[in-house]
């Protein structure tokens, strides 16, 4: 059943990509997006500069339709910009960090794989990292990549260029359950990830794992179970950080198809709180959760009255790792959420 679903998701996603992708802009027409956010930097409270490089986008989305919830590809451009332009753009974005002090991290996202040379040419990658290696207040550089591009050679090169600054590779594993991952149409397995993990550990790079909270076709309760299970398993594998990413409904995705028909509801914010409360104390890895679009129908949401407060609490927890932030949160809708979780098991 999972395999047939996966094929169908791929089919629909490809159709959607075909419809939405041509409206992207040519290379050089969008400057990189960047912003500063509070962050947990290697055990300390600090800030992160987030830079989104507009690239041609994730090959997996371009060739196989990609992940069922992912619409980041539409933020990309029609072709790969020349390396010089990429570097120029990055430097421009980095100006925002002028006001920041030690410790800070830099997160470079491409909406795909930083180590895929079709997205970020080797020259550009090296130049960006070299530039950062001279920035003393930068403690950690975080990049994203699918496991197939996290080769020994690429990671080694990056570590060498960074000259002792911490390199952390974030991987969208989404779940440790292969069955569930097939519903995301992720295209790789837990064993692929484990091989990559071993490489990164051997080279002493940091590993951050993204977990998707409530992939399509999971009930709220099942999603909570799946994430908690994944966290416990990952903790045993010694990953450094786990980022919980509540699913949001992106335009032009398979999940959006479900959502428009009323067949998908993004997770409740209560579920995120529950997950962290349940696993906290059992595990060593840092857990972060900075929801996007919370309170919005397309994002994780509760009743509308308490969404903002809970979103803030989750973000405060992510930076401080202080569990008190999540205790004693309450709202009338907490019971509605409990009821929703239970009745969905029987009535949906």
């Amino acid at each position: 059943m999972n395999a047939s679903l996966s094929r169908l998701i791929s089919h629909y996603s490809l159709k959607l990509r075909k419809e939405y992708l041509p409206s992207r802009k040519p290379a050089g027409h969008i400057p990189p997006k960047s912003w500063i956010e509070p962050d947990h930097v290697l055990g300390k409270e600090g800030h992160a500069l987030v830079v989104i490089l507009p690239t041609v986008g994730c090959y997996w989305a371009l060739t196989a339709g990609g992940c069922s919830m992912c619409g980041y590809i539409y933020d990309g451009v029609l072709s790969t910009p020349p390396p010089t332009l990429i570097l120029e753009y990055f430097k421009l974005a980095y100006e925002k960090a002028a006001s920041l002090s030690y410790p800070m991290s830099v997160k470079i996202f491409t909406s795909g794989s930083f180590f895929d040379e079709r997205e970020v040419p080797k020259l550009a990658r090296d130049e960006i990292l070299r530039f950062l290696s001279y920035e003393t207040k930068v403690e950690e550089v975080i990049v994203e990549s699918r496991p197939e591009f996290v080769t020994e050679e690429a990671v080694n090169d990056a570590i060498n260029v960074l000259r002792g600054k911490r390199l952390t590779v974030a991987i969208g594993l989404e779940t440790t359950n292969d069955k569930v991952r097939s519903l995301i149409n992720k295209g790789f397995s837990l064993s692929d990830f484990k091989a990559t993990l071993e490489t990164l550990k051997r080279l002493e790079a940091g590993v951050k794992v993204y977990l998707l909270v409530k992939p399509p076709f999971l009930r709220e309760t099942e999603a909570i179970f799946d994430v908690e299970n994944s966290i416990r398993q990952l903790s045993k594998m010694n990953v450094d950080a786990i980022s919980l990413n509540p699913c949001t409904v992106h335009k032009g995705t398979f999940v959006e198809l479900l959502w428009k028909r009323g067949d998908y509801r993004p997770p409740w914010l209560w579920s995120l709180v529950k997950i962290i409360l349940d696993v906290h104390g059992e595990i060593d890895a840092t857990i972060t959760c900075a929801p996007t679009a919370s309170g919005h129908p397309r994002g994780p949401h509760n009743c509308g009255l308490c969404d903002r407060g809970i979103d803030t609490a989750l973000k405060r927890f992510s930076v401080t790792q202080n569990i008190k932030q999540l205790k004693n949160l309450n709202c009338k809708c907490k019971l509605q959420w409990k009821l929703y979780c239970q009745e969905e098991l029987i009535s949906q």
Partner: peptide, 9 residues
């Protein structure tokens, strides 16, 4: 499974 309404799915 959580059944959704679209026919082929």
């Amino acid at each position: 499974p959580l059944v959704t309404g679209q026919r082929d799915v």
